[in-house]
Simulated assay, not measured.
Amino acid sequence: MPITPPSGLVHPLQPIAALPRGVYVPMPAFFHPSSPTSPPDDTLDIPATQRHTARLLAAGVAGLVVHGSNGEAVHLSRRERRAAIEAVADTVRHDADYSHAPFPIIAGCSAQSVRETIELCREARDAGATHALVLPPGYYRGLMDRDGFVGFFREVAERSPLPLVIYNYPAAANGVDLNSDEILALAACPRIVGVKLTCGNTGKLARVVDGAPRVRGGRDDFLVAGGSADFILQGLVVGAHGTISGFANLAPRACVRIGELFEAGRLEEAQELQREVAKADWLAIRYGFVGVKAAMPMFHGPGEASCAVPRLPFKRLDEAGEAVTEIREGMASVLEIEKGLVAKAVGGK
């Protein structure tokens, strides 16, 4: 049965490929560091962005996210947002496998109004993104009811040139936490194709996994992903399609491996690896994107030291400080696991 375009639609209605299962990585924003004798630089480091993109592609991730909360989107200008997406898209064009469908590049396009959100979606599309990741508009939370939040996503989906992934992250949306009924109501929209559940509610995840095919005419094409690496396996057990995890910037192969072990029926090995990843991810959760950045040179070599720089008002964690010591010690086990998986990949299976 053909889909009737809703009124106000400004994009050509075309078939939308389902997002593939697997690990999606919300990339950090990389900035040039300042020297002790120079004023702050913190301009975008495009070479570092492209090196990291290539690294993640080689690790076998399913897709990339640019300008999520891990990527300091709120610290970037519109011009910088476009430049970062273009850098990632350029690397993907050279390195990714396009044999089945375009490699997913999901761009954070969150704003408080429908109009600006759509503008961000258009700019992301023009820069090379394939999908848009959108938060509920929480600034005026007290003046909006639940129907208002659902209506926001429907309005954006009707007019956006990119299909949407819902970003359910209460901490970044003034406490707005979409429930499973609301997410399923949005899953019925053909141009809303997935959800990232950073709320960490695996019961909600299970309900959405169960209900989405029913509201989408029997198709299992609505990506349901957890929002951190500490419950990849728990999500897979109840039917999740993968994860969108900031920790995967550090140990992408370990995160991918959890899914491989689960699919192969090697549950005890998957459980053991998940426990190690969860312990390390707790430090990434506690210290946030600044902690993930601090760990970049630990996992990817001293040449990535510049990747540890956040944008003011945030400051780089002190290399000799307690936080970095705790991160180094707490992530040591997963670092060794990741090194072993890299060595195995390089040396051949």
Rank of each mutant, 00 (worst) to 15 (best):
G246L: 07
I232W: 05
V237P: 03
D281Q: 08
A294W: 13
E304Q: 14
G227W: 01
V238N: 11
R286I: 01
S228N: 13
E269Q: 14
K293E: 13
A278E: 02
G259Q: 04
A240Y: 12
A270D: 06
M296A: 11
D281A: 03
M296D: 08
N249P: 14
L273Q: 12
E304P: 13
G235N: 05
F222W: 15
A240D: 07
A295S: 14
A225M: 04
F262N: 10
I244S: 11
L267A: 04
Q271I: 07
N249Y: 07
S245V: 00
R253I: 02
L250F: 13
Q274R: 13
F262A: 13
G242K: 00
I244V: 04
E269G: 09
A240K: 06
L267H: 08
R275C: 10
G303Y: 01
F289N: 05
V256T: 12
L261Q: 10
Q234I: 09
A240W: 10
G265W: 06
F222K: 10
Q234E: 08
A284S: 06
G288H: 08
H241P: 01
R275V: 07
I232K: 00
E268K: 09
T243I: 11
F299Y: 07
A254T: 03
E263K: 04
C255H: 02
A254Q: 06
A251P: 07
K293C: 06
G226E: 04
I258S: 01
S245H: 02
P297L: 08
I258Y: 10
A229S: 09
M296V: 12
V292Y: 05
D281V: 02
G265P: 13
T243G: 08
G259D: 01
F299I: 13
I285V: 05
I244Y: 05
N249S: 06
A278F: 09
G239Y: 04
R286K: 13
C255I: 01
E263N: 09
S228H: 15
V256R: 13
M296S: 07
M298P: 06
F222H: 07
R257T: 08
R266T: 08
V256S: 05
I232Y: 09
P252L: 11
A294T: 07
V224D: 05
G291P: 14
A305M: 11
G301A: 03
K279P: 00
S228M: 03
A305I: 03
G246F: 14
D230K: 05
V256F: 12
A225G: 15
G235C: 15
A225T: 12
V292C: 11
H241W: 03
R253H: 02
G226C: 15
A248R: 01
F299M: 03
I232G: 00
V290E: 06
E260P: 02
A225P: 01
G242F: 00
R257N: 12
T243A: 12
Q271A: 11
G242N: 00
Q274C: 10
I285H: 03
E269D: 15
V277I: 12
L250Y: 07
F247V: 09
A248I: 04
Q234S: 10
L283C: 00
F231M: 12
V290S: 05
D281S: 09
N249C: 10
N249K: 11
A270M: 08
F289H: 12
